[in-house]
Amino acid sequence: MTSLPRLPFAIGLSIAIVATAGLAATANEKAVAARHAQMQMISYNTGLLGDIAKGDAEFDAAIVASAAANLNALAKLDGTSLWIAGTEQGAIEGSRAKAEIWTDASGFAGKFAALEKASADMMGAADLDAVKAGMGAIGGACKACHDTFRGPKN
């Protein structure tokens, strides 16, 4: 398998966010578009790990390490410019963010901290069993956040 050149993660994420956010008209709409990009990157990397855990993709230590490191970086991303009060569901089209994100900011931060820890633990996964075990914590972190802080589809 030929390895593709990699952009530093922060540059790649910045390109994705700018490209997505540039389509929005207002600052709040841009923030929502940017955090959607963050969530898409979380979903993509979680999906890579999930496919390996389910046996839909072969174990590849490099992919596991990369996806876990990306999840970890995304969980650490400073959300100050993304999670802006006034961008909750109903205020901005396409937002599913519940108002609880701002009324329980420490709880919301704790959900990202759980993903940060789970992804850090996954970075050392040496085999398929470790990936399977680590997916419980990653999936649990995502579910806990969505159950508490994400509204229903519009």
Rank of each mutant, 00 (worst) to 15 (best):
M41N: 09
G50M: 06
N70T: 03
A97E: 04
T46H: 11
I42L: 13
A53P: 06
D121Y: 01
V131N: 05
I17C: 06
F9R: 06
T20W: 01
G47Q: 06
I17G: 06
A21T: 04
I11T: 15
A25V: 11
D127M: 00
E93V: 12
A37P: 00
N45P: 01
A126M: 02
A69D: 13
M123T: 14
T2I: 13
W102N: 07
L71S: 10
G151W: 01
T2D: 10
R35V: 00
T103S: 15
Q40W: 03
I15V: 15
D127W: 00
L115I: 03
D127F: 00
P5G: 03
D147T: 08
R35F: 07
D147F: 00
K76G: 06
L128D: 04
K132Y: 00
E58A: 15
M122W: 03
D147K: 00
A126Q: 12
F112V: 07
K76E: 14
F59W: 04
S14F: 06
Q40L: 12
D51Y: 02
G151K: 01
A57C: 08
G79M: 11
A118H: 04
F59R: 09
G47S: 06
S43A: 15
A118F: 04
L128T: 06
I138W: 02
Q38D: 10
R96H: 10
G124N: 11
P5Y: 00
A99T: 14
T2S: 10
F59S: 09
N70R: 06
D51T: 06
F149Y: 15
S81Q: 13
G12Q: 02
M41G: 05
S119W: 02
D129M: 04
L128A: 10
V64P: 04
A53W: 01
A10I: 08
A27T: 15
M1H: 12
F59P: 06
S95W: 05
A141I: 09
S3T: 14
A75E: 08
A24Q: 09
M135A: 09
S106T: 15
A137R: 05
D60F: 00
G94R: 04
L4D: 11
G124V: 07
L49I: 00
T148M: 02
T2L: 10
A73K: 14
G124Q: 09
S106K: 12
P152A: 13
A133T: 15
N154G: 13
A10L: 07
E100C: 01
D60E: 11
M39A: 13
M135D: 11
G139T: 01
L23D: 12
A141S: 14
A141L: 07
M41C: 10
L13Y: 09
A62R: 11
A68V: 02
D78L: 07
M122T: 08
Q40T: 10
F9A: 11
T148V: 08
L23V: 12
P5D: 06
A73L: 11
S43G: 14
C142V: 14
I138Y: 04
A62C: 02
F9T: 02
A130D: 04
A141Y: 02
G140D: 03
D147V: 01
K143C: 00
H146R: 00
K30S: 02
A27R: 15
A144E: 14
R96M: 12
K54L: 13
A34T: 05
M39Q: 09
E58I: 08
A126S: 12
